[in-house]
């Protein structure tokens, strides 16, 4: 038994080693990545191997990329190219633009989400969940009170390995109620039970906290709140 366990461990370490070295084919690489995402112990083996092999990276000669590459990356991530120096770079200067950009995004997403509605159903609420304390997490939500259906769309930010985002509803001064763990990626479709639907109106807040995988073990948020916003009629 013990011998077999040892053999299995050796096989896992070898898989991690070959993944870090880069010799696996595409399908095996995906399998190793899936394993690393699911099992922190395997991810740690991969990291150990990356560290062991790291000195071989001395073999890579630095080559400056084309100047345009940087602005292309920033435009893709932040929407607007940034100038190189001085006050153009300051956060205070950019904040209103970032806010305007995210409002634009909400408006355009809002329009897209609006199309999701069938004609004649009014009273929908939109919530722009803005990042808290410079977290990279932004979401936008649309709620239809008549059906209790909510759609939550990620704008930016990921929970990361071994973590999940959990969504909370906060009405006035009442305690936050969990609306569940969000999917790792893509749009979340959430159906609110009638008791909760009654509490969702203009001014009700939605918050996202970062929790251990599977959500808060205690029923109250245990991790930091990474995004927050209040419902507004559209």
């Amino acid at each position: 038994m013990a011998e077999r366990k040892e053999r299995d461990e050796e096989a896992r370490d070898l898989l991690a080693a070959q993944f870090a070295l880069g010799t696996l084919d595409l399908a095996e690489r995906r399998e190793a990545e899936r394993l690393a995402a699911a099992e922190p112990a395997f991810a740690a083996l991969v990291e150990q191997w990356q560290e062991r092999l790291a000195p071989l990276a001395e073999g890579y000669e630095p080559v400056p990329p084309p100047v345009a590459a940087k602005s292309a990356i920033e435009a893709r991530l932040f929407g607007a190219p940034q100038a190189a120096t001085g006050f153009w770079h300051s956060l205070a200067f950019w904040r209103p633009f970032a806010l305007a950009a995210s409002l634009l995004l909400v408006v355009s997403l809002g329009i897209n989400l609006y199309r999701w509605e069938t004609p004649g159903q009014g009273g929908s609420l939109v919530v722009s969940l803005q990042s808290v304390e410079a977290s990279p997490v932004n979401f936008v939500a649309l709620y239809r009170p008549d059906s209790g259906a909510m759609r939550l769309s990620p704008v930016s930010g990921e929970a990361g390995i071994g973590k999940d985002f959990e969504l909370w509803l906060i009405e006035g001064d009442t305690a936050p109620v969990s609306l569940g763990v969000l999917p790792k990626s893509g749009v979340a479709e959430i159906s609110l039970p009638p008791a909760l639907a009654d509490r969702f109106h203009a001014g009700t807040a939605l918050a996202i906290s970062l929790e251990p995988e599977g959500g808060s073990p205690t029923g109250v948020a245990t991790g930091p709140v990474v995004a927050l916003g209040k419902a507004n009629p559209i």
Partner: peptide, 9 residues
């Protein structure tokens, strides 16, 4: 970026 571009190339 120069080092990482070296890796890609």
């Amino acid at each position: 970026s120069a080092k990482l571009f070296g890796v890609c190339l």
